[in-house]
């Protein structure tokens, strides 16, 4: 029984990896389209620089991160973002509109696993490109090079996996709305906006006013980029708080997603039927 499942997982992943490698040029471009953290690093590093030059008349506290921390933070944010991207809404919307979902539902494998495997395969294909971009970054700015401690690296890895799980579940909940609406991807567009601004992708949470930061931490978004990125970059974060928040969000999202899926499948009667 369990060896059968293991074989199933291996075959599923193997076939998805083969598919993704076919699309490697496309995936390289997707990886490259995540350059926003580097642009924002350019902007923020100049802001920091001007504090030093001006001598800080009233903004004595500055933004709370020096040039080195900023460089490491934004590189980490780039890497974390690359491995937490989910596109299940788009894949699912296409499958359900084109009627491919019907045969999937007949197979003795819950269709969501197919998307999980596709995402993992895509990340494996993406990894070399991410490594190349990171190498280029250190080539241009060798002073920012660092090696995280094994504990921090392990915690960052775990946090990234959890962040991916959160993003995947969040998107799957929206994907399930495809059972009711033909344009669920429009909702994903709305979700991507707070993800962009509150996750720490364009500005580290340390730069937020305290009230806004506290409010943002009640949403799932900062935990999906800022927390894993600060773990990787060696910044100061509370491990217990971060992991507890992630566990709580997953505990909410997982049953919600499964519930929506069951309701949706019950309602589903193939597109056009």
């Amino acid at each position: 029984m369990s060896s059968g499942r293991l074989r199933l997982a291996r075959v599923l992943l193997g076939s998805q990896v083969a598919t993704m490698i076919e699309y490697r040029a496309e995936i390289a471009l997707w990886a490259l389209s995540g350059v926003l953290p580097f642009i924002m690093l350019g902007l923020w590093s100049q802001v920091e620089g001007s504090t030093g030059a001006a001598g800080g008349v009233d903004g004595g506290a500055g933004i709370g991160l020096d040039r080195l921390q900023l460089a490491r933070y934004f590189l980490s944010a780039f890497v974390v973002r690359q491995f937490t991207i989910a596109w299940v809404v788009f894949a699912f919307e296409e499958d359900s509109l084109q009627g491919r979902l019907s045969p999937y539902l007949l197979q003795p494998l819950p269709p969501l696993w197919r998307y999980v495997a596709a995402h993992l395969a895509e990340q494996a294909t993406r990894a070399p490109f991410v490594a190349a971009i990171a190498a280029l970054f250190f080539l241009l700015q060798p002073w920012a090079l660092w090696l995280p401690t094994p504990q921090r690296a392990g915690a960052a890895l775990l946090a990234t996996i959890l962040a991916f799980t959160m993003n995947f579940l969040l998107q799957s909940c929206i994907a399930c709305l495809c059972f009711w609406s033909e344009r669920a991807s429009a909702l994903e567009r709305l979700l991507s906006i707070p993800l962009l601004f509150l996750s720490g992708l364009v500005a580290p949470l340390e730069t937020f006013p305290p009230g806004v930061r506290a409010a943002a931490q009640w949403t799932p978004f900062p935990w999906m980029i800022h927390f894993p990125a600060q773990l990787l970059a060696g910044g100061s974060v509370s491990l217990a708080q971060g992991f507890a928040a992630m566990a709580a969000w997953i505990a909410v999202l997982l049953p919600l997603c499964l519930g929506l899926w069951r309701l949706g499948v019950r309602r589903y009667s193939a597109m056009g039927a």
Binding site: L43, W44, V47, S50, T51, V57, D58, G59, A61, G62, I63, I193, P194, L196, F197, V202, A203, T207, F208, P209, V212
Partner: peptide, 14 residues
């Protein structure tokens, strides 16, 4: 969001 990010920069007096 864009105005917010801009305000983060300018809020520090930069």
């Amino acid at each position: 969001g864009s105005v917010f990010v801009l305000s983060l920069v300018y809020g520090q007096g930069h």
